[in-house]
């Protein structure tokens, strides 16, 4: 019984020692809006629709992204071919629906979509999250 008592006492002492030891360790707090932590290159942030140097979409309107999207994130892709063979694409994404799984980015045959490191897009207006290119 007494050995139990001393074991308990020792443990109480050790516990307090451990807690005190933490007081001298590095802080983990990150003062968020002022300081932000770096995210890696693999980060799955906001999805950007890539344009080439002539400000033209890389997208060819194949619709594969819509097919692999699990949650209606890709709403609509309209493809129009003009008489001179020029392609017009209207690409509509809804970021409120998107779960940022990355299926569309990985399966795009033209690499026309890419992830950015941006992750703060809270807004009051839901329609702002609907992106049309």
């Amino acid at each position: 019984m007494f050995s139990d008592f001393f074991k308990g006492l020792k443990s109480l002492f050790n516990g307090h020692k451990t807690v005190m030891k933490q007081a001298f360790q590095k802080r983990v707090t990150l003062e968020y809006p002022e300081k932000k932590r770096d995210v890696s290159d693999n980060f799955r942030g906001r999805i950007e629709i890539v344009k080439d140097e002539n400000d033209k979409l890389l997208c060819i309107g194949c619709g594969l992204c819509k097919k692999v999207c699990p949650c209606n994130g890709v709403i609509n892709i309209e493809k129009q071919t003009e008489e001179n063979g020029k392609l017009h694409i209207r690409y509509e994404r809804d970021e409120a629906q998107c779960i940022y799984c990355g299926n569309c980015v990985e399966n795009c045959p033209q690499k026309a979509l890419k992830f950015t490191k941006e992750y703060e897009f809270a807004t009051d207006v839901k329609s702002e999250l609907r992106k049309i290119v």
Binding site: V19, M20, Q22, A23, Q25, K26, R27, V28, T29, E31
Partner: peptide, 10 residues
């Protein structure tokens, strides 16, 4: 905050 490796109110 000190004991829990945070900064506390700042």
């Amino acid at each position: 905050a000190l004991f829990t490796v945070r900064k506390g109110p700042n």
